[in-house]
Amino acid sequence: MAVTKEQILAAADQIAAEGQRPTLEAIRQITGGSYTTISPVLNEWKAKQTSTAAPIREPAPQAVADRLAEVGAEVWSIALELANARLASEREALEKARADLEADRVEATELADRLAGQVDELQSRLASIEAAEAAARGEAGELREALTAMKERAATAEARAAELRTELDHAHQEGRQMRGERDQAQGVALERAEVIEKLRDELATARTTAEQSERRAAELRLELDRAHQDADKASQALADQQQASRAKAAELDQIKGELVKVQAKAEADQAAHQEQRKQMAQEAARQAERYTKAQADRDAARSDAAQAREDAARLAGQLQAHQEQAAALLARINPAESKPASTRKKGGE
């Protein structure tokens, strides 16, 4: 609400009645309003107060009157004129100072209005700044919370980074170990390649040996067949010898019986048949030689048969050993090639 002139004058009278000097700020505290509105009315009030003040015309004090009675009223009149002249010059100086002061006051009033506007603007800005500060404080709190969360996440990330660095170190160690194992495996592979090459050489040698063993086995089979034939012949001869031995044994038994009879007859007829006894003794000696020879022939036939059996068993053992050696070599080279060797073994048997 606008301030009226009467309100400003009443406020100035109130301040003057209280014994204080009316000022723009004092009146503004009572009525409100701007300095531009209050200043002209206050100047008008001050002008009225000055115009109502009369020149000093006081009667001389009694003491002065008594003492200046001799000088008279002329001296007093001169003094009053001097005082009035001095007062007039002072009033001129005062008017000039008042004009200067008025200009300064107008300038100060305008400056005060500008300052008041700036104060209002600053107060508005201050309110905005306070609101922004409150918002900033809220944001600062949120940022602090976010910063705390970020610090926690950073600590977690640091811990995870440490774990990852540890895992990376372990991975590097495992990589180095795996590279070492790879190099070792490559060395083993090279060694195995060399072993395979040697095994291939041994395979070729074994195949050659197997072929030689096969040829030797064929030869041994032929020898075994011949040995079997010889053994069959020896067995047949042994059977013949045994049959002959049995015949000779029967004949020998018969001869023994006859010899016993002859000896008995010779003993009975010893005296009478001395010559016949000698003949019978000679015949008995011949029969004994024939018996001894038959036993020797029988023992020789048995020895030949035993030797033939031993030769056949030895040849069969050699053939079996060669076949087993060939089968072992083939099984070492290739397990799948051991079946033909077994088949050949069965065929040889």
Rank of each mutant, 00 (worst) to 15 (best):
D232S: 13
L224E: 03
R286V: 08
Q118R: 07
A134Y: 02
L190Y: 05
R314A: 15
R165H: 09
R246C: 07
D104N: 13
Q276S: 12
A79L: 02
E92G: 02
A237M: 09
D120E: 15
E44G: 04
A54V: 11
E310C: 07
A305T: 01
A341H: 07
V119A: 14
T31I: 00
L9N: 03
R105V: 02
A159E: 09
A281N: 03
A136G: 06
S39K: 06
Q20T: 01
E289A: 07
S245F: 12
A266T: 10
D311P: 03
T166E: 12
L111Q: 15
D201L: 08
G117F: 11
P59L: 03
Q279R: 15
I38F: 00
G141W: 08
L330P: 00
S39H: 11
K278D: 15
A154C: 03
E191K: 14
A85W: 11
R144S: 08
A79H: 02
Q184A: 14
K96P: 02
A313E: 15
I333T: 06
L222K: 14
T209A: 06
E211D: 08
T109F: 02
A249R: 08
T50G: 05
D225K: 09
P59R: 04
A132H: 10
T292L: 04
A316E: 14
Q242N: 12
E95H: 03
A88G: 14
G257A: 12
A149E: 12
E74I: 01
S128I: 05
A103D: 04
A328Q: 13
E139C: 00
P59G: 04
S128G: 12
D201Y: 04
Q123L: 09
L319I: 01
K346L: 10
P335T: 00
E167R: 11
I255P: 06
S303Y: 06
Q318W: 08
E275D: 15
A271N: 07
Y291L: 14
S39T: 12
A99F: 07
A112G: 08
T4L: 00
K261V: 01
M280F: 12
A134M: 02
L315T: 10
L101S: 06
I129V: 12
G257F: 03
V41Y: 00
R216E: 06
E267N: 11
A244F: 06
G141Y: 04
A264G: 03
D311Q: 12
M1W: 03
E211M: 02
V64I: 10
I129A: 13
E167K: 11
L224F: 04
A132N: 08
A47F: 09
A218D: 05
R176I: 15
A112N: 05
K96W: 07
P55D: 10
A88I: 09
D113H: 06
T208I: 10
N334K: 10
I15N: 00
P59I: 02
E181G: 04
R98V: 11
S213I: 08
A85P: 08
Q243R: 15
R160M: 04
K261I: 01
S235Y: 11
D183W: 05
E6N: 00
E107D: 07
